[in-house]
Amino acid sequence: MTTATDRRHLWIVLTVLFTVGWATNHFVAMMPVLHDRNGISDAALEAAFGIYAVGLLPGLLTGGGISDRVGRKPIVLPGAAGAAFGNLLMLVWHTEPGVLVGRFAVGLGVGLAVSAGTAWCADLGGKRGTVFAGAVLTSGFAAGPLASGLIAQFTDSVAVLAPFTVTVVMSLLAVAAGLTVPNVRRTVTHDDHLVDSGTVRSLARALWTGIPMSLWVFSAITLSIVTMAGRMTAFSGPWVPGVAAVLSLGSGVVTQVIARRSMWGPRAGIGGALLVAAGLITMAVAGSDPSPLQFIVASVLLGSGYGLCLREGLLDVETYAPAAKRGLAIGVFYVGTYLGFGLPLVLRGLAPSFGIVAPMIVLALMAVASAAIRGVQLRTGVLDGR
């Protein structure tokens, strides 16, 4: 990023990503509203949360790769518009089928927008653009549930309509602003196949370093705002998942900022995975009726781990993926992250046979294993050049 025009374009694309994050995640605050006002069952709402991940996969797997060939704009803006359309469906059709179809449409749109949008930010701003993309997307994930929860809380007669209306309008305004950004791709040169140290870039290296981090990105967040918030009995209402989102996603933003300013480097990924493991152990100890303190501690630990895993995974991909395959690499990375959206539904299915504690312990051990893999990568030079 070298000119004022590039900076302006970067901030417009970041705005699009912010509204995409908002349009994606504000649904968590609407889950108790839809349950109480429209009689949609908890199982159906968790299924809607999971079907979003199914919708994501085609966009994530194809959107980034296609954007490598045709440019980012033709993929990002239709994707953001698709996320708005999914929310519009839920605005006018807030029954169980409508919510399922709407969330699936949101997933399709977000899958296109996130991978290609992050690559677009990298094209415009390099590593700085990549880090900003992750932080801004996180901010949208956090702001959406909080804002929609507050809107629903204080607009009694239109508690379902008002949050969806705000989301749709914001999304479409951002898409309109995105139309002013030209569809220009970065020119690929021989140097794009080398990192700063002279080490060769490759898609395999980008994914080998990024995927172990990706698994703990949205897994951590959904466990806080869906599973942990759903177990709270001391408090209830649409603001509870909103508070969980602010605690977890807000912690994620803070840790990303601290990691950037303190120049923690790739070792931060080890810390991220271990923080997730600590949050999972806290959930296991809390059981089916967590105290407010356990709820706060688990959300902050999981959110902090989320922030570091997202930052480090994206930087791995940006550093090691060849520029001509950056969109594809980011898309595959995000497939790993979004698998976490199906975790609450998986845990609900496992609970009758295995309870709620054993799965948390198994997940914690898996997070520790990811930290160990990154430690090996550091010692063997796989992460050189970061």
Rank of each mutant, 00 (worst) to 15 (best):
Q153D: 06
M366W: 08
G375L: 02
K127D: 13
G307Q: 02
V346F: 11
G39N: 14
F354D: 01
T3P: 12
A105S: 10
G355V: 11
W239V: 07
A204K: 12
A147S: 14
S202M: 15
T138M: 14
H9C: 04
G331F: 07
T95K: 02
P212D: 11
T337S: 14
I258G: 10
L108Q: 05
E318A: 07
V297Q: 05
S236F: 08
W120H: 08
A159T: 07
A142Y: 03
A48M: 04
A268W: 07
T165K: 02
A176L: 05
V175Q: 04
T5V: 09
A48N: 06
F49N: 14
I221Y: 01
P58I: 14
A298G: 01
F18Q: 05
V13A: 12
A4S: 15
P163K: 04
N38H: 11
I211H: 01
W264S: 07
H190F: 08
W208H: 01
F295R: 07
L56D: 13
Y334E: 06
T189V: 11
F235L: 09
V92K: 03
A220M: 10
F164C: 05
S67K: 09
I296H: 00
L60R: 15
V181K: 01
A278K: 08
L249M: 11
S202Y: 06
D42I: 06
D192W: 01
A143G: 03
S248K: 12
P78L: 07
S148L: 00
E318H: 12
G269P: 09
R205I: 02
V368T: 09
L223I: 07
A116G: 02
L14I: 10
H94P: 15
R260H: 14
V168M: 00
G349F: 06
P241R: 00
D289H: 13
R186I: 00
V254Q: 05
G385S: 12
I75R: 12
G198D: 13
V92M: 07
L343C: 01
S171L: 09
I296F: 08
I51T: 13
A133K: 11
G140I: 08
D42C: 03
S353V: 10
G140F: 04
A364M: 04
R8M: 00
S291T: 12
I40L: 15
S139N: 06
F18I: 04
A369Q: 00
E318W: 05
I330K: 01
F218N: 15
P344I: 05
G79C: 00
L61E: 05
A277K: 12
T118F: 01
Y52N: 05
I40Y: 06
V217W: 03
G149V: 00
L223W: 12
G198T: 04
F18W: 08
M31N: 11
T5Q: 13
V160T: 08
V226E: 02
A147T: 13
G129S: 08
A206H: 03
V246T: 12
L347S: 03
G349A: 15
V184E: 11
G134N: 10
L203E: 09
S67A: 15
A371S: 12
T118M: 12
